[in-house]
């Protein structure tokens, strides 16, 4: 996982609430056996519509999604986070996230930043007035900026620390590798191994 301190990229106003994970990535796209390539499934049902925001320049190249409340509800599929990351998003801003989505996002390095809905509305206006406006998300200061607008956001401290250091769960555990090795050396010798006998 790459460390995340601050990111600047095109903001995408997604004026929808209750975007569930089936909408983020429909089930038919879940058959893949890799963790990459899910970008074509992202918002698949909506992308058929030419008016859909990601079908419009310059939003197409967006990396900061500004969404309505209750983002990521429904099925626990991790694929929703993979799809957003694969497409190129680094941050989702919303007034409220579903717990499992937020957890999955933190594990994979997608910043799920929680803002006041009034700030989301102001951001939407800025991004719609001038498509292609860049948004800066500063994880150190916990602020989001666009033009001369600045607002705070919330991420829990544990997740923030891990994102800043670029530590996924595995990297975190590997910091305790010495303890794991020590534990292994003390295991009874009669415990089974799977290798052919």
């Amino acid at each position: 996982m790459e460390p995340f301190t601050t990111h600047t990229g095109v903001g995408v106003p997604l004026r929808r609430s209750n975007v569930d994970t089936d909408q983020i990535i429909p089930a038919v796209y879940l058959k893949r056996v890799t963790r990459t390539g899910f970008e074509d499934g992202l918002f698949a049902a909506w992308r058929g519509d030419e008016q859909f925001i990601l079908n419009q320049e310059p939003y197409r190249a967006g990396s900061v999604l500004v969404a309505g409340p209750d983002f990521g509800t429904g099925s626990s599929r991790e694929h929703a986070v993979w799809a957003l990351l694969n497409y190129g998003f680094r941050v989702v801003l919303s007034a409220r996230f579903a717990d499992i989505f937020r957890g999955n996002a933190g594990k994979q390095g997608l910043v799920a930043a929680q803002c006041e809905q009034s700030d989301i509305e102001l951001l939407w206006k800025i991004l719609e007035a001038e498509p292609g406006t860049e948004v800066t998300v500063d994880l150190i200061e916990k602020t989001v900026r666009a033009k001369d607008f600045t607002a705070p956001f919330f991420v829990d401290d544990y997740t923030r620390r891990r994102l800043l250091e670029g530590l996924d769960d595995i990297a975190l555990t590997l910091r305790h590798e010495a303890a794991v090795t020590e534990f292994e050396q003390a295991r009874p010798k009669w415990k089974p191994v799977t290798t052919p006998l």
Partner: peptide
């Protein structure tokens, strides 16, 4: 366990 945890066990032989 879930797929992320499968990866965690493969990489570390542990779980949090």
């Amino acid at each position: 366990i879930g797929t992320s945890e499968v990866e965690h066990v493969l990489a570390t032989q542990t779980l949090s």
